[in-house]
Design a binder for these strands. Structure first.
Lengths: 148, 148
DNA sequence: TTAATCTCTATTGACTCTATAGAGATTACG
DNA sequence: CGTAATCTCTATAGAGTCAATAGAGATTAA
């Protein structure tokens, strides 16, 4: 299951992606627009910031902007940042591999074989969908942060 | 993440599938063979029994057997029985559909569109892999299911 | 200097996960 | 019948996670 926190993150990012990039967007405005408890949203935005998905500016007239073009922010990255690895077990995770504690033989594990296929299919899909795709934005954005 | 309970369920079912079907297998033996805490395994087997995946016989010389041919028990069913729906949100679940509490418009939800693709891919994979596949069993002793 | 804003850490209540406990129901068999 | 062996059911406990809230701290523009 996707956590509520991840769903909030998506909604917050949608709001940011739609917002005119000329000025940053304040936490309070994102919270209201996306119906997210404000203090909870603060934590989410911090997580997204540490991952480079959003950028912030402090002080008066501060706020948040996307850290990159919406076309460069994938569903996979958002979910990984908030909820952790996509894989159903650590032993099939590409980004957070870990041996299962009680695994007898990873090479022959019948569960692992199938879960690896699932992980790859999931990652393929989530990595190939970006914020821009989801919102039907034009792909023609400059590489760097939105000009104008 | 797959719960530990689900992984125990797989291991227990593997043990049952390999066990000679002439006699039922006792909880204690399954627990030892698959390294599962015995009392925890009892609960798991009850869940699997209620789902028809295993069958039990009580009293002296009782025990558990598979409820169907290993070829008729899919990974998807095992995971659904123990951990619940495969989908990442209730709104894309085929077996346990529910509207998201705070969804504004399900038809246009950009998150949902992608998660639906993920769910379908996941379900396809998990439904197409059976216990028999996983263990490399011959489709030898079909109870009812014809071979291909 | 001040007001506005993001940043950080702690805390809380509800819930879930893993595991254990023990009494109850059923069965085979002498 | 009586008994031992087995599955069945429900309760409980401890650790951890999730969602949300709180408040003090740091930074910035004017």
């Amino acid at each position: 299951m996707l956590s509520k926190k991840s769903r909030y993150a998506f909604r917050a990012l949608f709001a940011l992606a739609i917002h005119p990039p000329s000025a940053p967007m304040m936490i309070a405005d994102i919270a209201e627009e996306a119906s997210i408890p404000r203090k909870f949203l603060e934590q989410i935005l911090l997580d997204l910031k540490r991952a480079g998905i959003v950028a912030s500016h402090r002080g008066k007239f501060g706020g948040y902007t996307l850290g990159r073009s919406p076309a460069d922010i994938s569903f996979a990255e958002i979910i990984r940042t908030i909820d952790g690895p996509l894989a159903l077990t650590p032993c099939v995770s590409a980004t957070a591999y870990r041996r299962c504690d009680d695994c007898v033989n990873e090479k022959t594990c019948a569960i692992r074989k199938v879960l690896l296929v699932v992980r790859n299919a999931t990652a393929d899909i989530l990595e190939s969908h970006s914020l821009a795709d989801a919102l039907g934005l034009k792909p023609g954005k400059p590489r760097r942060q939105a000009s104008r």
